[in-house]
């Protein structure tokens, strides 16, 4: 069977318009009887079109409003997720900064504890240790507050 038939388009147009076979000229009908390709087209297309009509009658459709509402809900959830993503990043960043400052504070305290011993042995006042401690404590509080604020800003569902 060849891949092409010159009359196939005419037959397809007749089928699509619903003119096959009643409103079709005799010459085209004769052609279809003799042409395997067009015969297949008529058989398959008419069976499928009938099946389509029958199937469309079987469909049990939901109200369009329900689908509209579901789409809106999904769209809104996606938007909320997109908004929450940078805040989640900020939250992690705040925790990391807090942790780094805490570690830094401990390290500095340990080192200055050693320095204080040296200063004490030299008879110094230990002013450096006090200033740095205050600054570090302030940074820790700031970082923790930032983290808590970001956490509070999150939706309860997103926290889990």
């Amino acid at each position: 069977m060849s891949l092409n038939c010159g009359r196939e388009k005419d037959v397809a147009a007749m089928l699509e318009a619903g003119h096959w076979p009643a409103a079709c000229d005799a010459e085209l009908r004769e052609h279809v009887v003799g042409c395997a390709r067009c015969g297949d087209l008529v058989l398959v297309a008419s069976t499928m079109q009938q099946a389509r009509i029958a199937a469309m009658g079987e469909a049990r459709l939901q109200a369009s409003g329900v689908i509209w509402w579901r789409a809106q809900l999904r769209r809104r959830q996606a938007a909320m997720e997109a908004i929450a993503r940078p805040v989640r990043g900020a939250q992690w960043f705040a925790w990391l900064v807090g942790l780094a400052v805490l570690v830094g504070f401990v390290v500095v305290e340990l080192r200055q504890g050693g320095l204080a011993k040296v200063e004490a042995s030299l008879g110094g006042a230990g002013f450096l240790s006090g200033d740095v401690s205050l600054m570090v404590a302030g940074l820790v509080v700031l970082a923790l507050l930032g983290g808590v604020a970001a956490w509070l800003a999150m939706d309860p569902m997103d926290r889990e």
Binding site: S46, Q50, A54
Partner: peptide, 8 residues
């Protein structure tokens, strides 16, 4: 249509 469905 039913016949078409049964065949299809």
């Amino acid at each position: 249509q039913v016949e078409a469905l049964t065949m299809l």
